[in-house]
Computed example of a mutant assay.
Amino acid sequence: MQSVQGCKGCSESVQVSPEKLARLVEMATLNRIAASDEEYERRLDRCLSCPSLQYGTTCRHCGCLVAVRAKLLDSECPYPGESRWGE
C-alpha cells in the first residue's frame, strides 16, 4: 500500500475552478462578517506563499479552502505554533 502525504481526504485530482472558488467565498460570507478587501488580500497572499498550501487552494493543516478562510473576519491561520497571518 502506498503512503499518501498531506491532506488525508484529498488527492491531486481535486481541483476547484476560480469561478467555483469565488462562489464559495461569497456563500461563506452571507451570514458572517467578512474581512475587508485589504485584509483578505494580505491573508490570502500569506496563504498562497505558505509551504503547507496544497493544490494551490487547500490548507494542509485544516483542509479548508484558503480563499474562504481568509475572507472570514473571525478566522485564524491554523499553521502550527504561529499564525502566518501575523496577527
Rank of each mutant, 00 (worst) to 15 (best):
Q2E: 15
S3W: 08
S3Q: 14
V4F: 09
V4M: 06
V4R: 10
Q5F: 13
G6C: 11
K8W: 12
K8M: 15
K8I: 13
G9I: 06
S11H: 10
E12S: 13
E12M: 11
S13V: 15
Q15R: 15
S17H: 08
S17T: 15
P18R: 14
E19Y: 08
E19L: 12
E19G: 12
L21Q: 14
E26G: 10
E26H: 11
E26I: 02
A28W: 03
T29V: 11
T29M: 12
N31V: 10
N31W: 04
I33L: 04
I33K: 15
A34L: 02
S36I: 11
S36D: 12
D37K: 13
D37T: 10
E39S: 10
Y40V: 01
R43N: 02
L44A: 09
D45V: 00
D45N: 13
R46H: 03
C47R: 01
L48Y: 07
C50T: 03
S52V: 10
L53G: 05
L53R: 06
Y55D: 00
G56I: 00
T57N: 12
T58P: 00
T58V: 12
C59L: 12
R60M: 07
R60Q: 11
C62W: 09
G63T: 07
L65A: 01
A70L: 05
L72F: 01
L72C: 08
L72G: 02
L73G: 07
L73A: 11
E76P: 00
C77I: 03
C77G: 08
C77P: 01
Y79C: 10
Y79D: 06
P80T: 03
G81T: 10
G81L: 14
S83M: 12
S83G: 13
R84M: 14
R84Q: 12
E87H: 09
